[in-house]
C-alpha cells in the first residue's frame, strides 16, 4: 500500500506539473516526458507487473490530460514499463549512468511507439523528427538523473540526521 500510495502521489504531482506547464510554458511541457520518466523510475525498482500497472495508470492519466487519442499513450507506457522492468531484472540499475540510459531508451521507445501507432493505424499524418525525439530523450534523462541525485542526497541527509540523533540519545 505504501508504494502504491507513493506512486499515486507522484502521478498526481506529475499531472499537476504537466497541466501547469501546459498553461504557462506549453513548449516546455512538450520537451520533457514526465509521465514516461515516472514509469521508468517505477519500473526500475519493481517487477514487470509493477511496470505494466504503473505504465497503464500513468498512460491513462496522460491520455486524459493531453489531446491525443485515448489509449495511445497508455499502450506505449505499458510497453515501456514492462520492458524497463524486465531489463532492470537483468542488469544492475543502481548505477546512475545505467538508469540514465534506460530513461533515454524508454523515452525513445515511447516516441517511436506513439508515432508508429499513429502511422500504422492511419489516425494522423506524423512527420517524425529524429532530432526532436533525441533531444526529448536526453532532456528527460537529464531530469531523471537530477531527480535520482537529489533523492540520494536527501536519503543520505536523513540517514545522517537519524544517526546523529541516536548518538546524542546514547551519550545522554
Amino acid at each position: 500500500m505504501a508504494s502504491a500510495s507513493r506512486f499515486a502521489g507522484a502521478l498526481a504531482a506529475v499531472a499537476l506539473v504537466e497541466v501547469l506547464l501546459g498553461e504557462v510554458l506549453p513548449a516546455a511541457a512538450n520537451v520533457v516526458e514526465l509521465f514516461v520518466l515516472l514509469v521508468v523510475l517505477i519500473s526500475l525498482r519493481g517487477n514487470s507487473l509493477h511496470g505494466l500497472t504503473g505504465g497503464l495508470a500513468a498512460g491513462l492519466v496522460q491520455d486524459t490530460l493531453t489531446a491525443s487519442l485515448f489509449g495511445l499513450n497508455s499502450l506505449a507506457c505499458c510497453v515501456v514499463g514492462y520492458g524497463v522492468a524486465r531489463a532492470s531484472q537483468r542488469i544492475l540499475t543502481n548505477r546512475r549512468m545505467v538508469a540514465g540510459l534506460l530513461i533515454a531508451v524508454g523515452v525513445m521507445v515511447h516516441q517511436v511507439l506513439v508515432i508508429g501507432l499513429l502511422t500504422v493505424l492511419d489516425i494522423a499524418d506524423v512527420d517524425p523528427d529524429v532530432l526532436v525525439v533525441l533531444s526529448r530523450a536526453l532532456l528527460t534523462s537529464a531530469v531523471g538523473l537530477a531527480y535520482l541525485w537529489l533523492a540520494r542526497r536527501l536519503r543520505e541527509w536523513a540517514l545522517r540526521r537519524r544517526t546523529l540523533a541516536a548518538r546524542r540519545l546514547r551519550s545522554k
Binding site: L52, L69, F70, G71, L72, L75, C78, L121, D122, I123
Partner: peptide, 14 residues
C-alpha cells in the same frame, strides 16, 4: 476501426 483496434490491444493489457 483503427481506434477500436488500439482499444482492443490496450484491453488485452488491462
Amino acid at each position: 476501426v483503427s481506434r477500436q483496434s488500439l482499444w482492443i490491444a490496450l484491453g488485452v493489457v488491462v
